[in-house]
Design a protein around this nucleic acid. Structure first.
Ligand SMILES: [Zn+2]
Ligand SMILES: [Zn+2]
Ligand SMILES: [Zn+2]
Ligand SMILES: [Zn+2]
Lengths: 138, 138
DNA sequence: ACTACGACCTCTAGCGGCTAGAGGTTCAAG
DNA sequence: CTTGAACCTCTAGCCGCTAGAGGTCGTAGT
């Protein structure tokens, strides 16, 4: 298997500039090159990029992925650190959900406005004055 | 009332560089200046910045806020457009909540791994293969 | 009136995670 | 050997700020 960057892109669903970006930030290793300096990838890079893509889809930050990749390359090691990273990420996801849910409640109360004019619109009133909000903090 | 930028910052909770940034992108109008070119703000700018800050806290994008401010300055107008903007934003918030909730489920299933080693860790397995995921798409 | 110093000024660059374009080169099929 | 799609590098842009360098202003105290 000897893939050009476009092949790798099609197989992983990661866009070409993104692949080059990942190389630039050290997330993907510098691949072999042809004499004309074109990149050629093998199965290792394919797996690694699939891993990266999936972790990104699951919301992990690039720095967390870097750590996960480092740990994953050491099969005999305890998976405790992997769990720590994942739990930290899960906590952030839960935090975001909580914040967005509060936002949703607030916005739903706002769109319940049935006035016709800006001068009396509930949405504008609430935006102008946080005291009108249901939650004390956002 | 004749506020220096630091006073305005303390009264609104918006950081000084952010205030200057809002001016630069045309969200806040250019204020009066002293002879030495220092900014001086009055009550209008104070209210406007409070509005901006609150809308940002409620997750509205800067461009939406620009539109909202334009509409808010026209009291006799129908508030239909304000509602459209808010409903669009609410839909995006709901979409994000749905996506994050799916992520949370996936991550919770992953952290349920009770193995000890990387070589058998459920988290690493799932990251390496989306086929292991519960949801078909993220 | 003068000094000290905190608050202000502009300008530039950086964050994360890409994405897009210009302008030039290489590869592979016919 | 020619064509043209695919590749290369480099730079800049997106959003919404945030930070720093290096210099000027305003005002309180003496
Ligand atoms: Zn209304
Ligand atoms: Zn509020
Ligand atoms: Zn594990
Ligand atoms: Zn998956």
């Amino acid at each position: 298997m000897n893939l050009a960057i476009g092949d790798l892109s099609r197989r992983t669903g990661v866009k070409i500039p993104t692949i080059r970006y990942y190389e630039q930030i050290g997330l993907l290793p510098s691949p072999a090159r042809t004499e004309g300096q074109q990149r050629r990838y093998g199965p290792d890079e394919l797996h690694r990029l699939n891993f990266i893509r999936h972790a990104r889809e699951l919301g992990f930050e690039v720095d967390a992925i870097r750590q996960l990749l480092g740990l994953a390359s050491d099969p005999g090691r305890s998976c405790g650190e992997v769990h720590d990273i994942t739990k930290t990420h899960l906590a952030e996801v839960n935090h975001k959900i909580a914040r967005l849910s509060a936002l949703r409640d607030e916005l739903e109360a706002m769109v319940a406005c049935d006035n016709r004019r800006i001068s009396e619109c509930r949405i504008i009133e609430v935006l102008a004055d946080h005291g009108e909000c249901q939650h004390r903090q956002h």
